[in-house]
Design a protein around this nucleic acid. Structure first.
Lengths: 194, 194
DNA sequence: CGTCTATTTGAATGTACTCAAAAGCGGTGG
DNA sequence: CCACCGCTTTTGAGTACATTCAAATAGACG
């Protein structure tokens, strides 16, 4: 049950048996079905969620109802609306399952208590968030400096595991282009191959 | 000398006199002149820097030499190439002073030692980075969902203190538009006023 | 199969860019 | 105090990347 998440944390810090037990006692298991919401806009994100199995996406929805996917999360990834979770404010993002999904979640209060009692975990959380932060930075830079076509090519290189798993219009949204234009990019690439 | 930075940290955690003294003993003071580099691309960012006086900008430079400004930092802000500082890898960003600037900087080793000896400071750093992280997230969302014109209007609202201080072509770069187009946006806005 | 959803195609359009040149602005020296 | 220089901002014309809209085609699933 907890192998994957313990292993995930052990990449950053070493844990004693007691620490593992205490940590896992704070987790709750949750299943959500394909196309169901883990978090809806306006709710407070009460949990930081670790994906045990399945696939989710977080997206920002603007005033015109336009969706902008910010992150996909599969097995061994964490996902939440970070701003909402940290500040305990209404979420600007929504998180939806793209597949039937199994999660282990921890609520903010438990996490804060954990940080107070086991300082090691605050260290872990800082390190994990630093990585996450760096990846968002890179994402931002790629939007600033690259064309839609380059972003697609990078995506294919960097996340080949997503290509077979996630519909094309979701990938288009992640790359912030229209599905029509992504289709045209793909045709162009296919023509180049020959 | 240290009032501003101690005050900055005290927004997040309470410090004893001894902690303050220890912390400030780790800082080095540095002045850089307008148009000089605090960090150049390819160097490792050895310091996280607190701005005591002046103004800097961090920018990503792509293969064509195009600049994309990611952050401005004035008094009471922190700046570094986070990825380079954390991972101790060559910087992809450059940081330059837009005005004569005074800094207090701390190197990574001192910071890590500080975290080990005074766990409180790791807590501070986590909280500060969480805020920084959230603001990068919002920056990304604004690029995804808003037109150049809306981004400019938001910038004017959110950072009026920068308008008189930073040249227009730097602001254009931060908004990721050409100076020419920013000029056109401003004319359009001015016409609306009448 | 038939239906529903996802992808592709094409034509018209728009937002923002490029390039070139003019105008504005601030400082310096004669 | 004016003239000149370099740098920043504005203007305009032409263009490109990506969008919108509408329709056709392809795929997936019951």
């Amino acid at each position: 049950m907890y192998d994957l998440i313990i292993n995930n944390i052990s990449k950053y810090i070493d844990l004693t048996k007691e620490e593992k037990n205490h940590f896992t006692s704070l987790l709750t298991f949750r299943k959500i079905k394909r196309n169901q919401f883990l978090l809806q806009r306006g709710e407070v994100a009460r949990y930081d969620c670790f994906v045990k199995k399945g696939c989710l996406r977080s997206a920002y929805i603007d005033k015109n109802g336009e969706e902008y996917i910010l992150q996909f999360a599969i097995e061994d990834w964490w996902i939440t609306d970070f701003e909402s979770f940290i500040n305990e404010t209404p979420a600007k993002l929504e998180i939806m399952a793209l597949e039937d999904t199994e999660l282990l979640q921890i609520d903010k209060q438990s996490l804060d208590e954990l940080f107070n009692n086991y300082l090691k975990f605050e260290h872990f959380y800082r390190l994990m968030n630093e990585r996450h932060f760096i990846s968002i930075y890179q994402h931002l830079i790629s939007f600033l400096s690259e064309s839609a076509e380059d972003r697609y090519l990078n995506f294919v290189q960097e996340y080949p595991q997503f290509l077979n798993r996630i519909p094309q219009y979701e990938i288009a949204s992640y790359l912030s282009i229209t599905p029509e234009y992504l289709s045209k990019i793909r045709r162009k690439q296919a023509e180049k191959e020959n």
